[in-house]
Design a protein around this nucleic acid. Structure first.
Length: 523
RNA sequence: CGGGCUGUGGCUCAGCUUGGUAGAGCGCCUGCCUCGGGUGCAGGAGGCCGUGGGUUCAAAUCCCACCAGCCCGACCA
């Protein structure tokens, strides 16, 4: 055992003296060009790639595995709060969609519309749509109206309420500037749609689901968020109130991580969701909707990634532990592989976060360094190396992705097996703390308009560096000042935090203000 | 939807001004050397140069049209 430790110490010393290891796996580095860094990470980690279809992406197995883990965790939380899954049509008749005026206005520009069926060969030999539909179909950008049509049939009496349904689906929003995961024409999400007997109950549901999102993002994605209400201008089209959780990613911009809407009776009026209440009178239902999308995959990348690629929180990693056989000599190869398989079996028997551990052995016959770097870029939380020397000393070399790549811990096989849940928890925890520290450091209390403008104005306008962050500043609710800030700085109110009031004066208008709001540039 | 740029092997691009029917790097394949840090060497596969038309003995190169994509301005999970 002592010799095992000695060997590693020497090995690490050699690695650290080699200047070539200073090179980062991803270029450019984050501070050089953050958007480009993001794209390179998504590609290097094989999460997704652009498709030939404009604005659409192909989600590759590693990226989809992350999404599936998110789905599984979220889905369990929805069930635990009494929701059940169902599925509604992809196509929404234009007339349904048009029922809620603000809603259509908000989504009209980004709707894909199906106007024809069947293809026919024209005179030039080209295929072209032939039969116009009597009524165009909107490809859902969100499903309030089509789900509302069903709810209208299902709801007769207060006894039918509440209705608590979620659907996992794809939606289409014809966006101008696609970016993998963050903004694509088609994306995957979950949308919850509920109907309640009273306004208070619907409001409570809206808040409850926001809390579910906050907990999910904190506990599973290791991302700290601020939660609160959206200002009127940022509200979901047709909603009475929109709540959201906002995360900060490493270029200091805000990203909306989940939203929950209190829809009042707007959509039930539009769809005719009516019930006979306890007094025997007809009343419109009180509805909510809430959603979280594949955008969260991009958010994880931008929150935790470093200059060597992705870093995955263990709870959502498709594989938590990758075992890397070191097979320098053909003679020892079989033995090493056998030891790897055995360790994988032992590790898989361990439980972590109520799940069986996902452990793989990378037995591909490619260069050891190449292989190692691949898993670094993919963000696997733990890499475990086993080589011929380890067989003799009954040890393994363990690398944590949240720590410098050169740091390896040598431990016995028994030790790694028994300590794995604890180590993964420690990684999960350290990622959260690192992200929280970063966010807190980039959040400023701002007291004057000048400081506000300074905070959000890049020092070098030709090549804007990463700048700004979250600003906590008093605002009196004036829509004009909000619009002015957006025009001047591209900074918007991300949320109006719940509860906590503090008397002060709006830093833009000088009018009395009852609370600070969070301002930031955003995705 | 308004303004600028670009379409050449899987990817990034050179070649175009001064027409003579293709090049580099990366990636990929094979072999050898390496292998506890993304290595090296040798060989190889892969392109009717976005599409259609025109000029010409001859077009990746010049002209016209079309199509597609990228960047910049208004929207968004």
């Amino acid at each position: 055992m002592a010799t095992g430790h000695f060997d590693f110490a020497r090995l690490i010393a050699v690695a650290m003296s080699n200047p070539s290891t200073a090179k980062t796996a991803i270029s450019p580095r984050r501070e050089e060009d953050f958007p480009e860094w993001y794209q390179q990470v998504v590609r290097a980690a094989e999460l997704a790639e652009p498709s030939d279809v404009r604005g659409c992406m192909v989600i590759r197995p590693w990226g989809y595995g992350i999404w599936e883990n998110m789905q599984r965790q979220l889905d369990a939380m929805f069930r635990a709060t009494g929701h059940r899954n169902a599925y509604f049509p992809l196509f929404i008749p234009l007339s349904y969609f048009a029922k809620e005026a603000e809603h259509v206005a908000g989504f009209a520009k980004e709707c894909a519309v199906v106007t024809h069926t069947r293809l026919e060969v024209d005179a030039d030999g080209k295929m072209k749509p032939s039969s116009p539909l009597t009524e165009p179909l909107v490809v859902r950008p969100t499903s309030e109206t089509i789900i509302g049509a069903s709810y209208a049939k299902w709801v007769q009496s207060y006894r039918d309420l509440p209705i608590l349904i979620n659907q996992w689906a794809n939606v289409v929003r014809w966006e101008m500037r696609p970016r993998l995961f963050l903004r694509t024409t088609e994306f995957l999400w979950q949308e919850g749609h509920t109907v309640h007997e009273t306004e208070a109950e619907a409001c409570a549901e809206t808040k409850q689901m926001l809390d579910v999102y906050e907990k999910f993002v904190r506990d599973h994605l290791a991302i700290p968020v601020y939660s609160g209400e959206k200002s009127e201008s940022e509200r979901f089209p047709g909603a009475v109130q929109t709540l959201s959780i906002e995360a900060m990613v490493q270029d200091r911009k805000a990203i909306q991580a989940g939203t929950s809407h209190f829809l009042g009776q707007n959509f039930s009026r539009a769809s005719g969701i009516q019930f006979q209440n306890r007094e025997g009178k007809q009343e419109f239902g009180w509805t909510t909707s809430w959603g979280m999308s594949t955008r969260m995959v991009g958010t994880v990348v931008m929150t935790h990634g470093d200059d060597d690629g992705l870093i995955l929180p263990p709870r959502i990693a498709p594989t938590q532990i990758m075992i890397l056989p070191i097979t320098p000599k053909e003679e020892t190869r079989a033995k090493v592989l056998e030891a790897c398989d055995k360790l994988a079996r032992e590790l898989r028997d361990q439980r972590y976060a109520d799940l069986a551990l996902e452990v793989d052995v990378d037995r591909r016959d490619i260069g050891g360094g190449t292989k190692n770097w691949e898993w670094i870029k993919k963000g696997v939380p733990l890499r475990v190396e086993i080589g011929p020397r380890d067989l003799e000393s009954n040890s393994v070399a363990v690398s944590r992705r949240d720590q410098p790549m050169k740091r390896k811990a040598s431990m016995s096989r028994q030790e790694i097996v028994s300590r794995v849940p604890e180590i993964l928890d420690s990684i999960q925890q350290s990622l959260f703390e690192r992200a929280k520290k970063f966010r807190d450091e980039q959040t400023r209390v701002i007291e004057s308009k000048k400081d506000f403008y300074d905070f959000f104005t890049p020092k070098n306008s030709a090549k804007p560096e990463i700048h700004g962050g979250f600003a906590l500043a008093h605002w009196n609710g004036s829509r004009e000042s909000e619009q002015q800030i957006k025009n001047d700085l591209k900074v918007t109110i991300r949320i109006i935090p719940f509860g906590e009031s503090e008397k002060g004066r709006c830093i833009f208008t000088g009018e009395p203000s009852s609370r600070r709001v969070i301002w930031a540039k955003s995705y």
